[in-house]
Design a binder for these strands. Structure first.
Lengths: 334, 334
DNA sequence: TTGAAAGCGCTAACAC
DNA sequence: GTGTTAGCGCTTTCAA
């Protein structure tokens, strides 16, 4: 059996209350006593039982995560990894609520409550059947990544999607492209809307027209990019450059372009979004908009922690800068 | 405040003990009473407090995970995803012990104990400074992935690494290769040893000699594969095929081959290991040994669950079959 | 500055 | 079949 606070108290010749106070950083403990207790704690390698702590109504030091996309998503996983360091710094462990479902019965809110989760990070796509506000309504601080949910005591993190795409358009214009098309992501997704807005703004600023059907709705998958690109290839005025809402989409697009007997970037330049690991390894290496996943993860935990600790904090957000990484899938025109 | 068992008891007109019995599937409860209780439970969406449950010495329904490589490893993440379904089926949540360190002070064993984790899955590489047996010595059921740790009440899962590589050699022999080299992984790694053994056995069975320096020690990274391949390219009798211990290594090897003015697979065939997502997307698409990550994950939870529930179970293991996926980085010789 | 004791929500003896 | 109650390990009043 592992040692408990009573063992420590006994060994240190004090009461359990005193040990508890030392452990919780109360200043009303005599320096000598404190040292004696800490010595025993160290000797016995004592760690207070988390369940008991959490039961007595204090902190559980657990943050829940929920991914609408499953655990192995190529873009979200690095964010998870980015969370690691600030998790460590703040002392939280991460709990992946596998039982989490969006069904009404056995609701995820209840599940979070039963686990005494202090806060939740939700990664995801917008889906009409997911009631994202339930969590914050239940008083559980929630941080959304790539989601714009309007609720109090909530945080949000995303990249500067709009500016990023706008900047990509500008880059293409600078290397002489004028017929620039856009492969959009899931239409009802927050990031898709931002990226599309960035495309439109960028084209306007560059003084370029957007021909009808130059924006093709797609999803974030390779297959989706492939299908959308085929549509675009049939366009009467074929684009010389395409900006995609994801790297996977860009890879699909490149496949379609090749199949049509055209070359990337000679005939069509392709720009992706995310800079997932794959991006630099495909052929040609993808010019893409890199999201700073590490920073997103770190910031997510920080903001969530803020939400947890400052009751008065109404709502927080962060926009993380991106970076256009120029590789070989885009080239000067003419 | 969330409802507790007392509220439910009151609403159902029974005692808390009865509610508890219903919730825990005791059969000594009157059918009528049971239904009445369940109705209230459903109405109130009651979920028992996990901390209280775990405190009273019953189950915490939490499985800990520890990755020696960090959260975003391209091979381990899919295994994590594979765990998801059986986690759900068995009712466990997953806790990622971010506070986990291998330092003696504040030991990870203590951390697991303080969290009342029922079992732990360890993913990883062999490292001499990691005392993997501590967990099982402390009585915590532990399941190792890709690790061979000799300890009681422990489980192990890995692919059939030896046979897999042996099979790959045989395949190369069938397509006329005779000068087959091997890029090994970290030398002190269990899977590396297995794969190397498979190479040696395969060569022997194929009646092929292994020239000196045909086995190059490397790691599982792209850079490692690149460096090792450069050594191999300088070999007096240049190989016509190389089997690598990882896909990332294979990608690095291909880079080195190209830099030397040679082509894959025309001059040298390259085979990887893992079939990470990248493998099918690089150029040329990688012939590789696919590990069934999904099955590994599912099986991991199942075995761990077995370890947790059957005290008498001494030790369990599973070898998961692999599959040689033939793509374009390997070709018939001559 | 310290300690005694109540109680967090639950399970499991044990009594009825 | 059902209820009463002790107690899991901890924090936190409150009294000394």
């Amino acid at each position: 059996m592992a040692t408990n606070i009573r063992d420590v108290a006994k060994a240190a010749g004090v009461s359990v209350a005193t040990v508890s106070k030392v452990l919780n950083g109360y200043t009303t403990v005599n320096q000598q006593t404190k040292e004696r207790v800490l010595k025993v704690v160290k000797e016995k390698q004592f760690r207070p039982n988390a369940a008991a702590r959490s039961l007595v109504g204090r902190r559980s030091m657990m943050i829940g995560v929920f991914l609408t996309t499953g655990l192995a998503h190529p873009f979200f996983t690095p964010i998870l990894a980015g969370m690691e360091q600030s998790l460590k710094a703040k002392g939280y462990d991460l709990i992946y609520l596998a039982q989490f479902t969006w069904e009404k019965e056995y609701s995820f809110v209840r599940h979070c409550q039963s686990r005494n989760v202090e806060g939740v990070v939700v990664f995801g796509f917008q889906h009409s059947d997911m009631n994202f506000t339930e969590l914050s309504e239940a008083g559980i601080p929630t941080l959304f990544i790539d989601l714009d949910v309007d609720a109090p005591r909530t945080g949000a993190i995303s990249s500067n999607n709009t500016e990023a795409v706008q900047h990509a358009v500008q880059y293409l214009k600078e290397i002489n492209h004028e017929q620039i098309a856009f492969l959009s992501g899931y239409e009802d997704t927050y990031v898709s809307r931002c990226r599309l807005a960035g495309y439109e703004a960028g084209m306007r600023l560059a003084g370029l027209a957007i021909p009808i059907d130059y924006v093709v709705a797609s999803d974030f998958t390779k297959q989706g990019g492939y299908t959308a690109m085929r549509e675009l290839l049939a366009h009467p005025s074929r684009p010389t450059a395409v900006i995609c809402s994801s790297d996977m989409g860009a890879i699909g697009a490149i496949t379609a372009i090749r199949e049509a007997g055209l070359a990337v970037p000679e005939d069509i330049s392709v720009i992706g979004f995310d800079d997932i690991e794959l991006a630099s390894h495909v052929h040609p290496p993808l010019t893409t908009i890199r999201q700073n996943t590490d920073e997103m993860g770190r910031k997510a935990v920080e903001l969530l922690d803020q939400l947890i600790n400052n009751i008065e904090t109404a709502s927080v957000q962060a926009i993380i800068p991106t970076e256009l990484v120029i590789r070989a899938s885009s080239a000067q025109r003419g």
